[in-house]
Design a binder for these strands. Structure first.
Length: 297
DNA sequence: AACAGCATCAACCGCCAGTAC
DNA sequence: TGTACTGGCGGTTGATGCTGT
């Protein structure tokens, strides 16, 4: 539907807010509460502002609200951001809800200017996917192809699931988070529309980059997506056996590889077994997490 | 001291979903 | 039921400050 830009009116001021404007604005809000943002400047009349309501709202939420915490992010806040970004991607509002005194904008800026730079660059994991004509087919095809790809790469991720101390791994939320943080979860999120570079707190940059490096060694041939068949089989399907590289460049033993494959395959199947209602929007709703938890109860 | 390039962050833009009419 | 309005969100931009040469 066509919408008029709220700031297209004549006489609407733009740009940075002056201290006087801020002061008057806060005073007005304290006396009247904001009500409708769009009508606020009119209601406020000549006492302040030739600002559009949207600008007022933003200024209040991001700058003037009394409960905003300013200043550098603590390590704890940083970890929270990273953790939730892994789970929810660029859903700043969701992440901000975990840091109640921080604003979406602040978190977004902090991510883009600080945290993002520290993350390793992901390779093009979807490079071999053939893009069908319709979005729904594309969605299905992506998921199918990534599942196949995942099956060739699970060994690298499985160690995350199997290396936890027993006591820790028994905590369902921790395990679920671990799973969600895992490459399987990452692949799943990519299909759901979040192209997020996954970085678990439990994975060092070195190991992750090692993983990504080894990923590039795996050639994936998934062409006939509609029929669900593989035109060209990958090496391990031909019995050659894919051997993940370790950080020191050595090759992981075949036996451990196959042991690990099992657990991650199960993990992938858990995601696959969930329907869209359970998953919700990128897996952020509570029923999704409950469903996920339920898989381990 | 002057300039260029980079980093930061406040502010804006466009889109979307919910809601009122 | 369709349209318009509003609030909210994420992406992007531009002004400003900082740093290196």
């Amino acid at each position: 539907m066509g919408k008029t830009k709220c700031c297209d009116q004549h006489g609407v001021k733009r740009g940075g807010w002056t201290p006087e404007e801020n002061e008057t604005f806060v005073e007005y809000i304290n006396n009247h509460r904001h009500g409708s943002w769009r009508t606020l400047p009119k209601l406020a009349g000549s006492c302040f502002l030739y600002r559009c309501g949207k600008s007022c709202r933003l200024q209040w939420i991001n700058y003037l609200r009394p409960d905003i915490k300013r200043g550098p992010f603590t390590n704890e806040e940083e970890n929270t951001i990273i953790q939730f970004h892994v789970m929810f991607g660029n859903r700043w509002a969701v992440i901000a809800s975990q840091l109640p005194r921080r604003t979406n904008n602040e978190i977004k800026n902090y991510w883009n200017t600080q945290l993002k730079k520290r993350l390793p660059q992901s390779g093009s994991m979807m490079h071999s996917v053939v893009k069908p004509e319709s979005p729904s087919k594309y969605h299905t095809a992506q998921w199918k192809s990534v599942r196949v790809e995942a099956e060739t790469r699970l060994s690298m991720e499985s160690s995350l699931l199997t290396s936890l101390p027993t006591s820790e791994s028994k905590t369902r939320s921790h395990y679920s988070l671990q799973l969600w943080n895992s490459e399987v979860g990452n692949l799943f999120r990519m299909i759901k529309g979040n192209s997020v570079v996954c970085r678990s707190n439990n994975v060092s940059e070195a190991s992750l980059s090692s993983k990504l490096e080894s990923c590039s060694d795996v050639t994936l041939q998934v062409k006939n997506i509609e029929s669900g068949t593989l035109v060209n089989k990958s090496q391990e399907e031909q019995g050659i056996g894919y051997k993940p590289k370790l950080e020191d460049g050595t090759i992981e033993s075949k036996s451990s590889y196959y042991e690990l494959l099992d657990s991650s395959d199960s993990a992938l199947n858990i995601f696959l077994d969930m329907n869209d209602d359970q998953i919700g929007s990128s897996g952020q709703n509570e029923s999704f997490l409950d469903t996920l938890y339920g898989k381990f109860d």
